[in-house]
Design a protein around this nucleic acid. Structure first.
Lengths: 114, 114
DNA sequence: ATCATTACTTACTAAAAAGTAGAACAAATT
DNA sequence: AATTTGTTCTACTTTTTAGTAAGTAATGAT
């Protein structure tokens, strides 16, 4: 799949950005990833993935204000672009379509209706 | 995600094996992939991916009978193992859980209920 | 001032996934 | 017997994804 748009980890982070909304900055994303998956991530891996996602045009970001807390450095807040949104949507549609064809999954469980 | 279990293309092929059932052999899988995605795959890529999936314990296979058709070489028929099934299930559950948290997707569309 | 803490950045490396090339096999057709 | 067709196989290369390391910055606490 040469033209693959997005990897698994990337897709998860992209979704987490969408979920975290205003709170979508690297550290929080890493924390959320760990809490949702019970798997460890290094913050570096998160940063480099967010960068990649930005290069691909799926995310954009801007620096937030520095908060008056200890270590309150300014955070870079990420948001999903239209293209990222579309990618997520397509990926989801495709997966659901396949799942619905797979007898082991198709048992009336997931009926996708837009 | 060092411990990633499965890639995107791999997951798709695994699902196609489940969908094609008794007809799950490399050529058919490649055909089905192309018809479902309108993307080309080389048969070699499919073979090597099926091998990888087998090494990972997600698939197993056995040779079928040779049919009396032109080019009727014996086909290798793939089936999903319990482990493959589980992986697919987990991957699906995880994705659905995330989608449901994402406001843009959660709008009552997909309510996952086992 | 110095230290601990919460963050980001960048260049790099490693690992995994995807894809290629080329050979081979079996049966039907010519 | 040679060719065509439908198919498998495997070793290898390329590309993409994931992860590491080391440094920087800003702030609050001591």
């Amino acid at each position: 799949m040469k033209e693959t748009k997005i990897g698994d980890f990337e897709e998860t982070l992209l979704l987490l950005v969408g979920i975290l909304d205003k709170e979508a900055y690297a550290f929080k994303i890493a924390e959320e990833f760990e809490s949702q998956t019970s798997r460890a991530v290094s913050i570096g891996a998160v940063h480099s993935t967010l960068n990649r996602l930005t290069e691909k045009g799926f995310l954009e970001s801007k620096m937030g204000e520095s908060t008056a807390e200890r270590g309150g450095r300014r955070k870079r807040i990420y948001t999903i672009t239209a293209s990222g949104q579309r990618t997520l949507q397509e990926s989801r549609d495709f997966k659901i379509a396949l799942w619905n064809q797979f007898p082991a999954f198709a048992g009336g469980k997931l009926n996708f209706n837009i």
